[in-house]
């Protein structure tokens, strides 16, 4: 994956002003945006998905421009072809598990095509949700909710997966299991991903590249080449940046 992003967004809330200056480029397939809460990593993810419009800048995936303020391009979310896993999963409470997973394949008027219906069934089986197809999200456990959300995001065949703190809603033992499951799924679907997290373990188990955020700015970018080096200075640099990122919190 070739991904480049360079955006500025000023926000005002509760009398405080916050400026996001996000800028990085990578060719790695697994990118982690790392930093404390309120450092701008989730805002960056939302900007990539088109859920937040930057003031200026440019976002491009594999040469496709998603947003470019100078060229006047701002692709709407629905046409960006990105899967998004929300922190609390945002499963539609009025739809069953099956309907949730089929949501992106269902036309506004009409029914899911037979081919798409088969794809939904296959996804449910793959995620071990086959027996829960008719259940509403309220009846699911935390892990089942996450699997449903992931199946729903993958159903539309996105070119990239965006994950916003995917494990924060789970308790610790489950978190470890779901982390393994997610790694397997990403391996199986060979899908590039960008994950937001403030958990160092998650960062280390998923990242090929890491972007470190602090108070709305990128303070470090480490690619797979850097990370692969046994060089202690790189590790130290990352740890120093993390420590710095958590300063004054």
């Amino acid at each position: 994956m070739q991904f480049e992003l360079d955006i500025v967004k000023r926000m005002r809330g509760a009398g405080e002003e916050f400026t996001l200056r996000s800028r990085f480029a990578t060719t790695d397939n697994a990118l982690v945006l790392f930093g404390p809460s309120g450092s701008g990593k989730t805002l960056t993810l939302q900007a990539i998905a088109g859920l937040l419009t930057p003031d200026q800048g440019r976002i491009a995936v594999n040469g496709d421009v998603l947003y470019d303020s100078r060229a006047g391009i701002n692709l709407p979310t629905r046409r960006r072809g990105l899967g998004y896993l929300f922190q609390d999963y945002a499963l539609f409470p009025h739809r069953t598990v099956w309907e949730n997973v089929a949501f992106g394949l269902t036309p506004l008027f009409g029914r899911v095509s037979r081919r798409d219906a088969r794809r939904v069934d296959e996804l449910l089986d793959l995620f071990g949700l086959g027996g829960l197809a008719r259940h509403r999200p309220a009846a699911l456990s935390g892990g089942q909710k996450q699997r449903t959300a992931l199946a729903r995001a993958l159903a539309t065949r996105p070119r990239m997966l965006l994950l916003d703190e995917p494990f924060s809603a789970l308790d610790q033992p489950l978190r470890l299991r779901m982390r393994k499951e997610l790694a397997n799924i990403i391996e199986k679907f060979k899908i590039p991903m960008i994950m937001v997290t403030h958990d160092t373990d998650e960062m280390e188990s998923f990242a090929e590249s890491v972007v470190v955020y602090r108070q709305g700015c990128v303070v470090g970018l480490h690619t797979s080449a850097d990370m692969a080096q046994p060089d202690t200075t790189v590790c130290r640099a990352i740890h120093d940046q993390m420590a710095l990122a958590y300063d004054n919190q």
Binding site: A49, G50, L51, P76, T77, R78, R79, R80, L82, G83, Y84, F86, D88, A90, L91, F92, P93, F103, G104, L108, R152, A153, T156
Partner: peptide, 20 residues
């Protein structure tokens, strides 16, 4: 987040309103 989720699943604004 429900409306945003529908948008990331390829839904236009009318569909977001009517379906979510």
């Amino acid at each position: 987040q429900f409306e945003d989720a529908a948008r990331t699943l390829g839904q236009g604004e009318l569909a977001v309103f009517l379906r979510v």
